[in-house]
Design a protein around this nucleic acid. Structure first.
Length: 429
RNA sequence: GCCAAUAUGGUGUAGAGGAAGCACUCCAGACUGUGACUCUGGUGGGGAGGGUUCGUUUCCCUCUAUUGGCCCCA
């Protein structure tokens, strides 16, 4: 029998899990400080949930199967659709704006490579029904805040607005389907193909020039003035620009200033409509994007009322590799605060009693379970990185005493048995 | 789907067509109530299948996996 993992999956060992838990907990803490509430959706859904939104061709990348009742099911490839599903079926009439966050694994049948696995984790959020520049600003701020809290260095926030591009295209009567195609080409940076396609659509030269100019625009907020000139007379685009300008004002109020305007951001998905942003860690190379999000109209796609939502998700695994390669101090604590060591077989029962007593008092405690000799017990405790050991010996017990040993200094003190709890502080240090 | 490199004890690695070595780990022991350092001993190894050869872990092919890149990325 071959014991191996499926391709593109990983096992996480103790130390890695501690690191991941730490990041998870930090993100939860930050998100909750913005009043988001956690939700969890199933690992598998009906296949149609995902094909409905993105068409049949997406099936290529989905792990799907038939269950015993002949239902077509799929391991979720992303979390936006499940969240939308949950919203439509249970939360449509809840007070708006509705703020939620999620953390879970997704599955895609793809060729594994750096920063890409077949099972990967996303940590993301969604705010439904609160379309305003404030909403967008708060969300971007929360993403930046999270990364600062994690002490991640060298990340870049790129901020754009699809309303500007779409506004221009609307005014020269480009249908939505063609717009989506154009967005796709922009997102991939396919300049040649884009040019060809735009020419085919018979877009006038002036508009064409402006489009190309826009998608190459990158820089600090000062470029807004420039944009206004370029977009003169194009109402829809100017409205979107106005929205973006307001968003920037709110970002300033929320003290988020380390971003870059980038109108070339289009996101791959069709349903994005307004603000979009992506966060990169350039040192990660090919898979440098650790976060992406924006404002979109997905609820409608699934047959709910028309309502705007804004959301983003961290690629949790990429975030982890960025933090690890940066060499964060993980401050990992030992498995237990105290080890209880019976000096001889006769004190085993007493040792377990003491261990349980400490656990019930909230101290993480390990006790010898291997019936080892004292030497081995101490060696084991040392290898586990445990700093305090309680030696339970017959001679001491007769006088109602225990020996408390500090594994770092080697110092030992004799204490009264009933004094043990009073030593909690000492034990925890 | 495509390209390349890699595959040796639990981990990290060396070597050579002819008895597979090192470091760490693990287990046992070195005056049986004391760990780290030290010493002694032990367990344990060439991804899978096929070919070449008197003989292959070593050369060749296929598969699988890993790593990196391309394609793709809801």
């Amino acid at each position: 029998m071959e014991l191996s993992r499926p391709r593109g999956t990983r096992d996480f060992l103790f130390y890695q899990m501690k690191q991941r838990k730490m990041v998870e907990n930090t993100l939860k803490r930050v998100f909750e400080s913005y009043a988001y509430q956690e939700i969890k959706t199933p690992i598998f859904e009906n296949l149609s949930l995902f094909t409905q939104k993105s068409g049949e061709e997406i099936v290529e990348q989905i792990y799907y199967f038939k269950d015993k009742g002949d239902r077509q099911l799929a391991l979720r490839p992303e979390l936006t659709a499940p969240v939308a599903r949950l919203y439509i079926s249970k939360l449509q009439k809840s007070p708006k704006p509705l703020k939620m966050y999620y953390f879970g694994s997704c599955f895609r049948y793809e060729r594994p490579q750096a920063g890409r696995f077949r099972q990967f984790w996303q940590f993301g959020c969604e705010i439904i029904g609160g379309k305003s520049p404030e909403t967008d600003a708060e969300m971007i701020t929360m993403a930046a805040h999270s990364l600062k809290e994690l002490e991640l260095e060298g990340f870049e926030i790129h901020l754009g607005h699809l309303g500007i591009l779409r506004g221009i295209l609307d005014e020269v009567n480009i249908v939505e389907k063609d717009q989506d195609h154009i967005m796709g080409l922009i997102d991939k940076g396919e300049r040649e193909k884009l040019l060809k396609f735009l020419t085919k659509l018979k877009i006038d030269d002036n508009t064409l020039k402006i489009l190309l100019e826009l998608i190459a625009m990158k820089g600090n907020p000062q470029i807004i003035g420039n944009l206004k000139k370029i977009l003169k007379g194009r109402e829809k685009a100017l409205n979107a620009l106005q929205e973006l300008e307001e968003l920037l004002e709110y970002l300033e109020i929320l003290q988020t200033d380390d971003y870059l305007l980038n109108l070339g951001i289009a996101r791959g998905l069709d349903y994005y409509s307004g603000m979009v942003f992506e966060i990169y860690v350039p040192s990660l190379g090919a898979q440098k994007q650790i976060c992406g999000g924006g404002t979109y109209n997905i609820i409608e796609t699934f047959g709910g009322e028309k309502i705007e939502s804004t959301g983003f998700a961290f690629g949790f695994d990429r975030l982890m590799s960025a933090l690890i390669s940066q060499g964060i101090d993980w401050k990992v604590s030992p498995v237990a605060d105290v080890f209880i060591a019976p000096i001889s077989p006769k004190t085993r029962k007493e040792s377990l009693k003491i261990a349980q007593y400490l656990r019930l008092s909230g101290i993480s405690t390990e006790v010898d379970l291997g019936r080892k000799k004292l030497k081995k017990i101490l060696s084991y405790a040392h290898n586990r990185g445990i700093k305090k050991v309680v030696l339970v010996g017959e001679r001491d017990l007769k006088q109602g005493k225990l020996t408390l040993k500090d594994m770092e200094t080697g110092e030992q003190i004799l204490i009264n048995k009933d004094e043990l709890l009073n030593q909690i502080d000492v034990l925890k240090k």
